[in-house]
């Protein structure tokens, strides 16, 4: 009889507050724990609908508790519960497939276009390096040994005969194709990521890497051109080179953007400018790795099986045209529903 008429008479406000809202907090705690342990898909519809409401209720409980309660365990519990709920509601990445689709449709080409100035700079540096390497080796073949590390030359040096040089261009498979493609891909991708990360030092190491890359290319061109094999060498290098060089130039461009953001933040704060640059260049770097994967396949497999110069040039041109179209062809903005 007295059980209903006589509720427990709490003396402290915090106790009343706890009793009134504890069920809501426990429910939010249960839902958030479920999401953390499993996934958001583990929730039924009711829980999904309740989540934002419970979150706001708990947030307002926290505000009240901070002002009226002296129970520290209570405020700490509410703070941590709200933080956990916040990150499950606002802070998680979007759906992974959605992110991947957005990356290919919009993110990657837009990021590449945003780097057009840096891309031109990186392209010019590579060309300058190539030109310099060509002139140096042409003028004095001894330069070749200064530019190319011994292991990389692999018998292709100014002393090699035209026949042996030619043999290398059309040797076809020497060694397991897949291993070779893999090795080329991982090596190049690592260098590209490196070139990007080095942009942090104001872009100077990135510029040096690009120049050196050009120098090596130019040095090889020089020894082949001297034997009258320039055209054949072009096909040999460009079949994957159009993709690989574009990728390295883009990686360098991303590095320049990073360095530029640090050195000249403009109107933004230095860290704000770094974050903006990071957002753009991150997309480009992922793209570069993908491009190098394509290049590795073209080099390891395509080049070993396609042995005719004109076909090699055709593949090179097609692939390059494909990349350029994908990156730079103006396209209408997708209509937003």
């Amino acid at each position: 009889m007295t059980a209903i008429a006589d509720p427990p008479r709490w003396r402290v406000n915090a106790s009343r507050f706890r009793a009134a809202h504890e069920a809501d907090w426990a429910e939010l705690d249960r839902i958030v724990t479920l999401i953390e342990r499993k996934s958001v898909r583990a929730l039924d519809d009711d829980a999904l609908l309740a989540l934002p409401v419970l979150y706001r209720t708990t947030l307002s409980s926290l505000s009240v508790a901070r002002e009226t309660s002296l129970d520290r365990a209570l405020t700490r519990y509410l703070e941590q519960l709200c933080t956990r709920a916040y990150f499950q509601i606002y802070g998680v990445p979007g759906r992974i497939w959605r992110q991947i689709a957005d990356f290919f449709v919009e993110g990657w080409p837009m990021a590449v276009r945003a780097l057009w100035r840096e891309t031109i700079a990186a392209l010019l540096l590579t060309l300058a390096g190539t030109w310099a390497g060509y002139l140096l080796v042409r003028h004095d073949p001894a330069w070749f040994y200064g530019i190319i590390p011994g292991g990389l030359a692999d018998g292709r040096d100014p002393a090699a005969s035209a026949a042996s040089l030619q043999k290398m261009l059309y040797s076809g498979a020497h060694g397991p194709l897949v291993t070779m493609a893999t090795a080329l891909f991982t090596h190049n991708a690592q260098i590209a990521i490196f070139a990007f990360a080095l942009g942090f030092a104001f872009g100077v190491p990135t510029a040096l890497l690009l120049l050196y890359n050009g120098l090596m290319l130019g040095a090889f061109v020089a020894i082949y051109a001297a034997k009258g094999l320039g055209f054949a060498f072009g096909g040999w290098v460009l079949i994957h080179g159009t993709t690989e060089l574009s990728a390295i130039i883009l990686a360098g461009a991303a590095g320049f953007r990073i360095g530029h953001a640090i050195a000249f933040p403009g109107r933004l704060s230095r860290s704000g400018s770094a974050v903006a640059a990071g957002r753009t260049t991150g997309m480009v770097v992922v793209g570069v790795v993908l491009m190098l994967l394509v290049a590795g396949l073209l080099e390891g497999i395509g080049r070993q099986t396609i042995l005719v110069d004109s076909e090699r040039y055709a593949v090179a041109g097609t692939v390059l045209a494909g990349w350029l179209t994908y990156f730079y062809l103006p396209r209408g903005r997708r209509a937003k529903a």
């Binding site: 916040y86 990150f87 606002y90 802070g91 998680v92 990445p93 979007g94 992974i96 992110q99 990356f103 993110g107 690592q190 990521i193 490196f194 990007f196 990360a197 080095l198 942090f200 974050v275 990071g278 957002r279 260049t281 991150g282 997309m283 770097v285 992922v286």
Partner: peptide, 26 residues
């Protein structure tokens, strides 16, 4: 988490880990 409290994007995660090249591997 993202410093501005917004969603953590895939791009941000890639950048923070690509930079490990110069932090650890260099």
């Amino acid at each position: 988490i993202a410093r501005n409290g917004a969603r953590l994007t895939g791009g941000a995660v890639i950048v923070r880990n690509a930079m490990r090249e110069i932090e650890i591997f260099l």
